[in-house]
Amino acid sequence: MRMLMRDTTMEDIALARATARRQARSRWIAHALLALGVLIFAFPIWITVVGSTHDVSTIGRGEVPLWFGGEGVANYVSAWLRGGSSLRTTGAVPAWLMLWNSLNMAVLIAVGKIAISLLSAYAVVFFAFPGRMVCFWLIFITLMLPVEVRIIPTFEVMVNLGLINSMAGLVVPLVASATATLLFRQFFLTIPDEYVEAAKIDGAGPLRFFKDVVLPLSVTNIAALFVILFIYGWNQYLWPLLIVSDKDLETVVVGMTKMIGTGDQQNEWNIIMATAVLAMLPPVLVVILMQRWFVKGLTETEK
């Protein structure tokens, strides 16, 4: 074989330099664009957080503050204890109560969904029984019917069952859904057959195998799903709006938007902003603190 050799020329050196420059530039552009993206996402929050530390008239006058004011403590204390409202109406609900209701709803929905999905997925995967596929499809098809679609007839069912204005009414209908069942089914299918065989030879029955092997192996999946479902529950809007008229059961997402009246000038914007911050804090914290499980849960439930 013949090889053409030549020395490194000035052009080669120049090309190498230009390449290095171009790569550095492309990296900087990427960072700049990402920073811009982060800014766009953070800005509305910034305005809200800052706004929640000013007094009502500053905001009402339209002097949009870009830096913290001195009323933060007072605003949050009054949002927490008294609640805000458009000043015309009475019966403001204090934020602590709404947060408590939201917390209850979110946790009950998440725990309930996980519990019944674990059981049903276990039945579908680890047993052969007549009607197995029918049951699977009955559950699977509910994937196609989000609560928003069948909202009015479901509401009627709730009225018939006397579940209006109750925590049970808020939670139970949202507890059944195919997503969690499908996730667990998918996960269970990856549990090697040999574990079941080993358990059978060890003398473990189905319930014992569930408790001693399946449940411990599912811990990360359960954590991941909990994050997703907690957020799902916390952020419910249409359903609580429909089911709850009792102020003692008001959830924070719905309650906060109800604070904004139509006569704009009279709104207690500072209290509304403080409540908005309180309303988004728990789910945002859950996402940030449990980011690893959250991303895993999200990308796996949707697979």
């Binding site: 047993f127 009955l138 079941v196």
Partner: peptide
């Protein structure tokens, strides 16, 4: 490899089937 039995799997499925029936299929 699977476990035998009919009553147990139905028992495990019951909560989900009841809720699905009452709050999905009936309203639909």
């Amino acid at each position: 490899v699977i476990f035998k039995g009919v009553a147990l799997p139905y028992l495990l499925l019951l909560p989900q089937l009841i809720i699905t029936g009452i709050f999905f299929f009936w309203p639909a």
